[in-house]
């Protein structure tokens, strides 16, 4: 396996363009959480011409709805949720400059095309490893939509948060390549 590439958001076009499928990346810095309900509201803001609860350009959205934090801890379990549910919203955010998404599972053609056109990357974290992923999260604060509970938008401060590049800006797809390599 290749060496880990260390990055700190916000990402620029050069950071994103250098990544290729299969690369292991570790993020240190701030990333934002968002699931279905939060995406629906963000996209409604675009339609209404209103400002966002955080600046989208260069940022990374982690598709996660964490479990509640015990006293003294920043967060509960926090692994990725399935990404296809955000497919109908993601291209609009990519167009506004979102540079990365972290989730699990394949994206649809529209999202892949938007990633190629506007330089964005799709990363996956290990689904079902919520306890392990939480160890890389040092701080969590709700920045919008507290009423959504686990689905609220949170700003996470992460250290060496491990992900793998699945879709790069050249239109490659690690899921497709992986299956081709190991199918019998």
């Amino acid at each position: 396996m290749n060496d880990v590439i260390r990055l700190t958001p916000p990402l620029n076009d050069a950071d994103v363009a250098s990544l290729k499928i299969g690369d292991r990346v570790a993020f240190t810095g701030a990333i934002y959480t968002g699931r279905d309900a939060a995406h629906k509201r963000l996209v409604e803001l675009i339609g209404a011409g209103k400002s966002f609860p955080f600046d989208i350009p260069g940022q990374i959205i982690y598709y996660v709805g964490p479990s509640p934090a015990r006293f003294g801890r920043p967060i509960g379990a926090a692994g990725p949720t399935t990404s296809y549910r955000m497919d109908s919203y993601a291209p609009q955010l990519i167009r506004l400059g979102l540079k990365g998404m972290i989730g699990k599972g394949a994206r649809n053609q529209e999202v892949k095309e938007a990633m190629v056109e506007f330089n964005a990357v799709y990363f996956v974290a290990i689904g079902g490893a919520g306890a392990l992923m939480a160890q890389a999260i040092k701080k969590a604060e709700v920045v919008a939509y507290e009423d959504l509970g686990p689905e609220a938008i949170r700003r996470l401060e992460v250290v060496e948060f491990p992900v793998i590049v699945v879709n790069d800006v050249r239109g490659n797809d690690l899921y497709e390549e992986g299956v081709k390599k190991y199918a019998r």
């Binding site: 396996m1 299969g22 996660v64 709805g65 964490p66 479990s67 015990r70 509960g76 379990a77 926090a78 692994g79 949720t81 290990i126 689904g127 079902g128 490893a129 919520g130 306890a131 392990l132 939480a134 160890q135 686990p150 793998i164 992986g178």
Partner: peptide, 27 residues
Amino acid sequence: TGKDVLAKLLENARIAREDSIPICQDT
């Protein structure tokens, strides 16, 4: 990569058990 993922799932289960944190956030 597959071996690494499987090892991490075992590590995750250990952390969950020892720290009383859910195995997965989707409980």
